[in-house]
Write a protein that binds this DNA or RNA. Structure first.
Length: 579
RNA sequence: GGUGAGGUAGCUCAGCUGGUUAGAGCGCAGGACUCAUAAUCCUGAGGUCGAGAGUUCAAGUCUCUCUCUCACUACCA
């Protein structure tokens, strides 16, 4: 059914910044849901391209490189590989994981800027910036510290005082110094930068956001409208830095007065979605234009973005300004799914403060499936969601080990024991079979709808309910009871049970791909029968009668080991998190 | 300060444009079963829906006030 209306879907998740392996909040809020969605859409027969990349420019990258004793390019190379590996460990099914520092993105960024300027959306202006003589660099506001003029706090940052919360300007700080080196040898200098005139675009942006009120989550539109209501300010899109995309003129030479300046990371990062798609095309001989050029087929592409709420403004305002202002037929996002935060024992996860659990550590203590399931079943969709070790344990033990894992185990091992490990024939359809059929007929289409709507918590809850229904079916059918008096009727229960195992494996693929693979290979399900073609379940050609009689199966080894109280203790000890 | 999101059973959360006895999972209590990772299945107890006022025949659902939590506030991304 779904194959009849196969769509071309472009999926991107917010680019993970380069300065370290990401924490579980980053994973839960962009990369993982994008992956789960991409996998589900592929199973439904859609033509999906999932693109991501490392976001490599900006001051934090330069500073992190310096701290690591590496050149910026060496550092980024190293961290790109680390992040790519972390993604692979969590089974993120990128079609391409690129880099914002690639040549393609450089070229696109420069071209966009030239087009924007030609259309009057870029203006060169002079501003004052703090320059640290000792560091030999301009400092972003937050890297300047000093005494807060409001409360006297001694380590107030140039953008905001951490003590009293007042918003500051670096020039307001008393006795300012560089947060990088601690040097007080700082001065205010005039510097020229390019400004993106977002204000001129606000009418069009407002109309565009307004047109998506119905299909975007409230979180997305409310953030965008808030900025529009406050009045868009023009944003500087260049910085005084070495590492990044050079600012050039139409001839391709460095623009006059822009030596030592590059584009601001937030200008080029979204452009890297396109650049990475071009890089993907170059490596695979794919066609990037059908995803991005509306004059080359991208009108027929559905573009879906995933991100944390902090990124919404950039994706609903700045990047669309870039796209619209270019006057060129670039694809705008169609559907934008934003997430709140996963919180960590009362606060936020923090890369800089090393608070929380990071992807490389997480994979060390539990298999990726465990994390994927828990983070999706508890996705921070309607509000921030608290992560606790106890909840993690409950998700894994109850949902995965008890409901799914035990189900697979109980029926496959019974089949091996009593029916020689093959799908048995015989038996009559009873109320139990009719009941499970009705359950599936109702739940599977609903589950698919939740995936299509990117309602992850609900999709997970529905999936779990289907697994639980399998256990209930076995209780009703009770093949072990029939076996004593009527082996044929026992065969019915086992056969349906085995079909359910196969179905559950098929359903589990987007969420817990490793376990799904174990189940499907134990059931000897060929690749071509692992897709989602079950909108209408029936006994004639539906998922309950998919396995041929005498089809051999085996009982997979225990799929999910339970998390013990001692594990929780050890992890709490190691990562903090005690309240 | 401004803006936004949220405060619904012990815990985590569903509840669309207001309409029968407010739902799910976990946890808890009792029972059933014994194929299974002491798993599973059934039943049950548990909520004055943050507080107060208002609109209405009718409000968790709309309006106002108050209160608590969290986030964003543009040069970290």
């Amino acid at each position: 059914m779904s194959n009849l209306n196969s769509e071309r879907i472009l999926v991107t998740s917010a680019l993970p910044y380069i300065n370290g392996v990401k924490h579980m909040g980053n994973l839960a809020g962009s990369m993982l849901p994008a992956d789960v969605y991409s996998r589900a859409m592929r199973l439904l027969g859609h033509d999906v391209l999932y693109i991501c990349a490392t976001d490599e420019h900006g001051t934090p990258a330069e500073l992190a490189a310096a701290e690591a004793g590496l050149s910026v390019s060496e550092y980024c190379e190293k961290m790109h590989i680390a992040q790519k590996e972390a993604g692979a460990n969590f089974k993120l099914s990128y079609d391409y994981f690129g880099r914002s520092s690639s040549a393609a993105t450089h070229k696109l960024t420069q071209d966009f800027a030239l087009a924007l300027e030609a259309n009057g959306f870029i203006e060169e202006r002079t501003s004052q910036q703090v320059f640290s003589v000792a560091d030999g660099r301009y400092l972003p506001d937050r890297y300047v510290e000093g005494i807060c003029p409001n409360c006297g706090f001694e380590a107030a940052r140039g953008d905001q005082c951490d003590n009293c919360g007042k918003l500051l300007d670096p020039v307001d700080l008393i006795n300012p110094y560089s947060a990088v080196s601690g040097s007080h040898d700082v001065e205010i200098r005039d510097t020229n930068h390019l400004y993106l005139k977002q204000s001129d675009m606000s009418g069009k942006l407002r109309d565009w956001v307004e047109s998506h009120r119905a299909d975007w989550p409230a979180l997305t539109t409310s953030i965008a409208m808030k900025w529009l209501d406050e009045g868009l300010r023009d944003r500087a899109i260049t910085r005084d830095l070495e590492w990044g995309v050079p600012v050039v003129n139409a001839e391709g030479d460095v623009r006059d007065g822009f030596e030592g300046k590059v584009f601001y990371v937030w200008f080029d990062a979204p452009i890297a979605y396109i650049g990475a798609t071009q890089d993907w095309a170059a490596e695979t001989e794919g066609d990037w234009e059908k995803f991005w050029r509306t004059d080359k087929g991208a009108d027929a592409t559905r573009y879906v973005q995933f991100m944390g709420k902090d990124n919404v403004a950039f994706h609903t305002l700045s990047f669309p300004t870039t796209i619209m202002g270019s006057g060129q037929p670039w694809k705008l996002v169609d559907e934008l799914k934003a997430f709140n935060w996963v919180t960590w024992y009362g606060g936020k996860f923090s890369t800089s403060q090393k608070r929380g659990v990071f992807m490389d550590q997480a994979i060390d203590i539990a298999p990726s499936d465990y994390w994927r399931w828990h983070l999706m079943a508890n996705a921070p969709e309607s509000s921030d969601a608290a992560f606790t070790w106890e909840d993690f344990q409950a998700s894994v033990n109850s949902d995965l080990a008890n409901v799914l894992g035990n189900f697979v185990n109980r029926i496959t091992s019974y089949c091996v024991k009593k029916f020689d490990g093959v799908v048995p024939e015989g038996g009559e359809i009873t109320d139990a079979e009719k009941w499970i059929q009705a359950e599936l007929a109702e739940r599977l289409p609903r589950m698919v709808s939740f995936y299509e709507a990117r309602e992850f918590r609900k999709a997970m809850a529905e999936t779990r309910a289907v697994w639980a229904a399998g256990n209930e079916y076995l209780t009703q059918a009770a093949p072990w009871t029939h076996y004593k008096t009527n082996v044929d009727q026992a065969a019915m229960g086992v056969r349906v049970g085995l079909n359910l195992v196969a179905l559950f494996g098929v359903l589990a693929q987007p969420i817990i791909p490793d376990a799904a693979e174990k189940i499907l290979s134990a059931m000897n399900i060929p690749e071509q029968f692992r897709t989602w073609n079950f909108r209408e379940a029936s006994f004639d050609d539906g998922p309950l009668n998919a396995l041929p009689i005498n089809h051999p199966i085996s009982a997979p080894p225990v799929l999910f080991t339970k998390i013990e109280a001692e594990d929780i203790e050890a992890w709490t000890e190691r990562f903090g998190g005690a309240e």
